[in-house]
């Protein structure tokens, strides 16, 4: 075997252009990390102090103030669940028509299609905490602001996934109904709805699960729920009560996840 064939047999996994792009990405990541480490404000004393402070915090959290649960936590916890659930329901009502309009195979025209997509994107780009701040400014502190915050943040999520489910629906079935001269609404309810139903319920459950987690934090900006209880306990430095609230949140979130997984298994 001569040198020429040897050289020809050297194997490159990627073309030079591909390698260049990948190298650029790696370089950017490394540069970003280095620059961030150098500029971000880190106070060394605080950092050295951290393990001790953390240990101190945990010591104050123990024993957990279980006695605080009936009068200080339970009601707030239930309120959180209601915020998450009602918020999800409202978001579904708003998201369904927008999601349909965002699906290019049934949107009556392109303008409406794009408008719907824009609505969904803006809903998703605003954090639920920001939505909560806005609604607290409008409706005053309390669960109403929290519920609407959850609803408005979820519209983008639910609407996007509903739209995608509609776009994936089998064309043939729908064509058959159109061929029978069925009106638009009936095509929707007989052709599309049965097809998207499983993914619809799974999306709603999934979002509810996320919303339980998110609604726990809304109280920090005054939008109701268990976050209020957390905020109060924290401001009074009652760390054993803080631990109680955290434990309550943890339990509910895990329970919600188990419930959702169980229901999804039965539906799908």
């Amino acid at each position: 075997m001569n040198d020429a064939t040897l050289e020809a047999r050297i194997w490159h996994r990627f073309t030079p252009a591909q390698r260049l792009v990948r190298f650029a990405v790696y370089l950017t990541v490394v540069t970003a990390v280095v620059v961030s480490i150098q500029t971000v404000e880190v106070i060394p004393e605080f950092l050295l102090d951290a393990p001790e402070q953390m240990a101190d915090l945990l010591r104050r959290m123990w024993p957990i103030a279980f006695s605080h649960y009936p009068k200080g936590v339970h009601e707030a916890l239930v309120e959180t669940l209601h915020i998450a659930t009602l918020g999800t329901i409202i978001s579904v009502v708003i998201a369904f028509p927008i999601g349909l309009a965002a699906a290019h195979n049934i949107a009556p025209n392109r303008l409406l299609n794009h408008a719907a997509r824009l609505l969904l994107v803006s809903s998703r780009s605003v954090n639920s905490l920001v939505w909560a701040l806005l609604f607290v400014a409008v409706f005053g502190p309390g669960a109403l602001a929290g519920t609407l915050a959850i609803a408005f943040r979820s519209v983008g999520f639910v609407g996007k996934l509903v739209g995608e489910a509609v776009e994936e629906a089998n064309r043939g079935t729908v064509e058959a109904l159109e061929a029978s001269g069925a009106p638009w609404l009936s095509v929707l309810s007989f052709g599309y709805w049965p097809q998207i139903q499983p993914s619809f319920w799974s999306v709603v459950l999934f979002r509810w699960d996320i919303n339980v987690r998110e609604s726990a934090v809304l109280g920090l900006v005054g939008a109701g729920g268990i976050g209020m209880a957390l905020d109060t306990a924290m401001n009074l430095f009652q760390w054993d009560r803080v631990a109680m609230v955290l434990l309550a949140i943890f339990t509910v979130v895990i329970a919600a996840e188990i419930v959702v997984t169980a229901i999804r298994k039965r539906i799908l």
């Binding site: 404000e41 106070i43 605080f46 915090l57 987690r213 920090l220 957390l230 955290l246 949140i249």
Partner: peptide, 18 residues
């Protein structure tokens, strides 16, 4: 299980603001 903002509260107490 915990929203990042809730975790952040705990860390603010332990590591200070920032």
């Amino acid at each position: 299980s915990f929203h990042p903002v809730i975790v952040a509260i705990v860390f603010v107490k332990a590591l200070g603001f920032g």
